[in-house]
């Protein structure tokens, strides 16, 4: 602010506090609900203050799941989510680094074609080609497997473009100096290019981890065995039952557990997160 106007400043603070409250309120309620016993939701007046059942609720969902809705222990689902998120994030980064390296540091027939093939994936989100993609994965026998959960999602035009963009800003002379110094392509890639990409890789990792963790439709389609349920899709199955059996305490405990890892990643790595978000949209 250029002028010193206390009223304006106060309004701004009020707007922000209202915003923070709006953003936080649903989560607050979820946390509160996860600390009550199942009977507290019968009365019709929702509790607004914490109850005494937090430990037992979380212990129950983590260790044994919800047998009435056929839900396995949340700890299993969270492990699945973690495996899926890590495989997707690391897989996307690795194959995108390699393709961007090929496209920027080599000239070869069909280079433009390869670039466009990768580009086209931007226009084919999984949501719009659900049935045929499911058929392919089913034919390959990848249903109910970690490979099926992650591999079909690890092509990444966005990550490839990000690395391509970054590689183009790396001075040409670095590669030339490395060649004079006797480094071949892969040596240059590992010794020079990879260390220089560290920040970009970390920023992208944050975004892709969240992307992988929050996958919903894909695990829903290709898992029928509860051994491979991920936590985000598992909530839906729990919530379905919650309408008839009021198990809101366990559903909300699961909700809290499902958002905890990605939210922690964003808060702890805020700088990298912002960088990753802004750069992937370029």
């Amino acid at each position: 602010m250029i002028e010193n106007r206390p009223l304006l400043k106060l309004t701004a603070h009020l707007v922000l506090i209202a915003g923070v409250a709006l953003v936080a309120f649903p989560v607050y309620l979820a946390i509160i609900a996860s600390t009550h016993g199942p009977t507290d939701f019968m009365s019709g007046v929702i509790p607004l203050l914490p109850g005494p059942h937090a430990v037992e609720n979380y212990r129950q969902v983590l260790a044994s799941g919800v047998s009435t809705s056929g839900i396995p222990p949340i700890s299993l689902m969270m492990t699945n989510s973690l495996i899926m998120a890590l495989t997707i994030a690391i897989g996307k980064i690795v194959i995108s680094l390699l393709s961007a390296f090929a496209i920027v540091y080599f000239r070869f027939p069909f280079r433009a074609l390869a670039f466009w093939a990768i580009f086209v994936t931007l226009m084919l989100p999984v949501e719009v080609r659900i049935v045929p993609t499911f058929q392919v994965v089913a034919n390959l026998g990848m249903l109910n497997s970690y490979a099926g959960l992650s591999i079909p999602l690890i092509a990444s035009a966005t990550a490839t473009f990000l690395f391509r963009q970054f590689f183009l800003t790396v001075p040409d002379e670095l590669m030339e100096a490395a060649r004079v110094d006797g480094a071949g392509p892969m040596k240059f890639f590992f010794d020079i290019l990879l260390p220089l990409s560290r920040t970009n890789i970390a920023a992208l990792f944050v975004i892709l981890f969240i992307y992988g963790w929050n996958q919903y439709l894909w695990p829903l389609l290709i898992t029928t065995s509860s051994d491979y349920y991920t936590v985000v899709m598992g909530i839906k199955r729990m919530a379905d039952v919650a309408d008839s059996y009021p198990q809101w305490n366990t559903v909300m405990a699961t909700v809290v557990l499902a958002m905890l890892p990605p939210v922690l990643v964003v808060i702890c790595m805020q700088r990298l997160f912002v960088k990753g978000l802004v750069e992937t949209e370029k």
Partner: peptide
């Protein structure tokens, strides 16, 4: 305080508001 909901899965957001 404002940016963290980005990390919340759409499905999770849906369930919270549904609740």
């Amino acid at each position: 305080l404002i940016i963290w909901p980005y990390a919340v899965a759409p499905a999770v957001a849906g369930v919270m508001w549904w609740f």
